[in-house]
Simulated assay, not measured.
Amino acid sequence: MSKSGGYKAEGITRFMAEGRRIQEGDGSFTVTIPRSLAMEWDLEHGDDLLFTAEEGSSKATIHKPGSEGGFSVEVADD
């Protein structure tokens, strides 16, 4: 496969780090997924992605569709 800018023609080569700008519109925020990640995970229009984060944390995790952990997260009542 040919490589260009650290990416294979179809997906990620070794390690990916890429920033994205948050867009606002219609009362919501939108962040695009890098094409290399979408290709690596074989994402298609309409796929659901799970985002998890903890209160006060400076990072969040995006989970690949169908990966361990599923798509539901239960929050305990305090």
Rank of each mutant, 00 (worst) to 15 (best):
27 G>R: 15
77 D>F: 11
38 A>F: 03
28 S>F: 05
31 V>F: 06
38 A>I: 00
54 E>Q: 14
55 E>F: 13
31 V>C: 14
13 T>Q: 07
2 S>L: 01
19 G>N: 05
74 E>W: 11
14 R>K: 05
5 G>V: 04
27 G>F: 04
32 T>C: 10
9 A>P: 03
6 G>P: 02
64 K>T: 06
65 P>V: 02
66 G>V: 12
20 R>C: 08
20 R>E: 05
49 L>N: 01
68 E>K: 15
75 V>S: 09
50 L>H: 05
14 R>H: 06
68 E>M: 12
77 D>N: 06
13 T>K: 11
3 K>T: 01
58 S>C: 06
29 F>P: 02
53 A>H: 14
52 T>S: 08
18 E>C: 13
10 E>T: 12
30 T>H: 06
63 H>N: 07
39 M>I: 11
18 E>N: 13
12 I>S: 05
59 K>S: 14
39 M>E: 07
57 S>F: 00
25 G>W: 15
35 R>G: 14
14 R>Y: 01
78 D>S: 14
12 I>A: 08
76 A>S: 13
39 M>V: 10
56 G>R: 00
4 S>A: 07
18 E>M: 13
31 V>H: 10
2 S>R: 02
61 T>I: 08
77 D>S: 11
73 V>I: 10
70 G>K: 05
71 F>V: 09
7 Y>T: 03
66 G>R: 12
40 E>H: 10
3 K>F: 00
23 Q>D: 07
43 L>S: 03
77 D>W: 14
77 D>R: 08
51 F>Y: 15
52 T>R: 04
25 G>Q: 06
1 M>D: 10
19 G>F: 03
76 A>M: 15
3 K>H: 04
54 E>L: 10
28 S>I: 03
61 T>G: 08
41 W>I: 01
4 S>K: 03
42 D>P: 14
52 T>I: 15
70 G>H: 01
26 D>L: 12
30 T>S: 08
71 F>D: 06
77 D>C: 11
60 A>V: 11
61 T>Y: 05
19 G>V: 03
64 K>D: 03
59 K>T: 13
47 D>V: 04
31 V>E: 04
27 G>T: 09
57 S>T: 03
38 A>P: 00
78 D>H: 15
16 M>V: 03
6 G>E: 06
57 S>K: 03
9 A>H: 13
34 P>Q: 05
37 L>P: 02
33 I>S: 00
44 E>R: 11
